[in-house]
Design a protein around this nucleic acid. Sequence first.
DNA 1: ATTAAAGTTTAGGCAAGACTAAATATGAAT
DNA 2: ATTCATATTTAGTCTTGCCTAAACTTTAAT
Lengths: 236, 236
Amino acid sequence: MLTVSVENYLKAILHLQVEGEERVSTTAIAQKVASTPASTSAMLTKLGERGWLEHQPYHGVRLTKKGQRVAMDILRRHRLWECFLVDHLGFEWDQVHEIAEELEHVGSVELINRLDAFLGFPKLDPHGDVIPGANGRFRSVAARTLLTEAPRNLELVVVGVVDGGDAFLRHLGVLGIQLGTRMTVMERLSFDGSLHIKYPDEEEVQLLAPSVGQRLWVDQSSPSPEIVFPEEEDLQ
Amino acid sequence: MLTVSVENYLKAILHLQVEGEERVSTTAIAQKVASTPASTSAMLTKLGERGWLEHQPYHGVRLTKKGQRVAMDILRRHRLWECFLVDHLGFEWDQVHEIAEELEHVGSVELINRLDAFLGFPKLDPHGDVIPGANGRFRSVAARTLLTEAPRNLELVVVGVVDGGDAFLRHLGVLGIQLGTRMTVMERLSFDGSLHIKYPDEEEVQLLAPSVGQRLWVDQSSPSPEIVFPEEEDLQ
DNA sequence: ATTAAAGTTTAGGCAAGACTAAATATGAAT
DNA sequence: ATTCATATTTAGTCTTGCCTAAACTTTAAT
Ligand SMILES: [Mn+2]
Ligand SMILES: [Mn+2]
Ligand SMILES: [Mn+2]
Ligand SMILES: [Mn+2]
């Protein structure tokens, strides 16, 4: 069995790999797992010896196929538990990350597959992130664009958030934005990239900071008037 | 936060206290947590220093009120998760203990209270064991007798098992016995305490070993003909 | 080409929790 | 009262995972 610590490192590295560059730096990993570069360096050596990643000293790491598979499994567990917490226990989307951070380490394969079935094999977690399947691979994802880069004068729907920490999620709450919220970009201001946003049932155009617009995934709004929740979307 | 190890020790001690004698011995605890007496001795010293138990060297331990409270919480989490696994994920009662052994260490109070509500505030877990409430105390339990000591010629219903390890639970499965099974004790054989058992829809009387009869909790069968599951019983 | 800042690893420690082997206490039997 | 088997604790190590401080690479700037 993998330790909690090892699992957290592997998941952090997967995260950084997916999001970013070729090789993942020791410092970036240390930051992600809230540890020091020294501790992280020691851990990376060990993870390398055990075949979960390739470690080129002073030049960062890259997960092996084997390591990637393990990390995807942890990500799968994390996101499935988040679904359970929101859909069945009534938590808000900004309250579930920390709890899922613990639940993800319960290792029974049988448990997680049954949970998956119980939840109806969801494709997206409460933050719009894709849930890996039992085969350890992402299911194909729908086309999505950052709000900042979306076309103007077209009704869009929020389908996910980028790197959704609880603080950001609560800020969205203040703005009245959640998954399924529809909006139209009227204008992109050249000064700092702020967006003029029009909501369907409001008259006034609102100003949205680029720090928010850069972290919202949107898709073309479906023609149906009711809010479409991601669990019910066809992502093929 | 309590470590997994500390939680397992406290729960083990609670178990031994409830079941048995005044003071709990180091060896008994070591056996329960699958560790050595030496390791256990060290742990007991520490648990004593932290105020969870009183440790009289060479004479065993006793949980303090504070320690009891903590242990009851862990027991609560364990049994609520067992309910979830059986009632909602479709596990059998002999498959859930190990998984709950891990889930019980996820510490969020909010999580466990919402889970309790989601499950409908069950009073008994899938093995017929009483689930402590959010106040950390057992809810009042219905009268129950060991099958070995139950009166003859009276229809009984199985409401729980004593110390139900997975092996014993599977043996019950072979015998066709589960929670809710009804039976009548026809005779108690003086040789070894074996029981002659009559099942409602069977002609032949079956012989039941005392090792089984001593580990089944029974109650007087309710008059209604359908099987009564414990979740629906009124235990006040 | 040197130099300096930034990133990374090594060195040396510490705490938790486990183990084995050895010492010591207890309690029952002589 | 002594002896002896059993239970318990102590001593000495080990592993995992973390830390700080020091040494060392890399890389970018002079
Ligand atoms: Mn985690
Ligand atoms: Mn998520
Ligand atoms: Mn446990
Ligand atoms: Mn149980």
